[in-house]
Design a protein around this nucleic acid. Structure first.
Lengths: 140, 140
DNA sequence: TAGTATTTGCGATAGACTTGCGTTAGTATA
DNA sequence: TATACTAACGCAAGTCTATCGCAAATACTA
């Protein structure tokens, strides 16, 4: 969890100008447990009285992603979500009922990945693994 | 690989009328090694001089999917792809350079899935696993 | 072959994302 | 602190994927 000041220097380090919208969005990312979609970001900025239209927010997250601050992911919705790249690659557990998205940090598929890589002569750079189902809360 | 006649009976079995577009698309699915997007299907129909607009093709694949003939998947693009359901659940190996998509049939993550399910008290109904990288051809 | 229910074509619509362009505003330098 | 440069933004228009309603066409059944 970084404060406003830290977010600013994080932006500077990435050679991005620290505008109000960018600072606020970095704070949002730092304090968020779930990967965020663009609409959520726009709503958040509005709540904080920071004006930023649709196109601007898309440009901001694209810049973040290009500079390696965030990562773009896709969870079988027809839209992208974004999460902090610093948290490392991980997987997601997605509830089909309430939509809750949980991170899974321990990755157990390295061996499988190596096997596939050798067998198919494919250089694997990344992977995406998602589990879909019903979370503990929604089973009740 | 099924011929025109077999595709027709496959449609009948699924209680779908065998229209030219549907027969042609079943043939395309049967002869295709990759999951298909809607634009590819439209192009294919055009080449065979079968008129079918965007809305129709979407309706066709939705009908196929609803009847269990095909499965709808998403591969980190903001669009759907469809593949024959009969080939069973499997994973994908995607080349970032040429876009080639290869199927991986042997799934080795059941144990991991069980472990997550117990730890998080989550009922897992399905999972998606994709590997991204560079295929053998594109390494040269 | 006629009747009917399904399917299609067309047009409109919606949502996610992008782009061009003129204006605004961070930031480096003096 | 004032100035200048360039990155970033706002707005509007446009693209692409996907869906929907309705009238016309067509596959199947009897």
């Amino acid at each position: 969890m970084l404060n406003k000041h830290d977010c600013k220097s994080e932006l500077n380090d990435a050679q991005l100008r620290a505008t109000p919208a960018r600072i606020a969005l970095m704070e949002l990312f730092e304090n968020s447990l779930e990967p965020l979609d663009v609409q959520t970001m726009i709503d958040y900025l509005q709540k904080r009285n920071i004006t930023a239209d649709n196109a601007t927010v898309f440009r901001i997250v694209n810049a973040f992603t290009q500079k390696g601050l965030t990562r773009q992911i896709q969870l079988h919705e027809n839209k992208f979500r974004y999460e902090l790249a610093a948290r490392g690659e991980h997987h997601h557990l997605i509830c089909n009922v309430c939509g809750k998205i949980e991170d899974i940090s321990d990755c157990k598929i390295e061996d499988f990945q190596d096997e596939i890589s050798k067998k198919k002569k494919f250089v694997i750079k990344s992977h995406a693994l998602e589990f879909y189902g019903t979370c503990n809360n929604c089973q009740k």
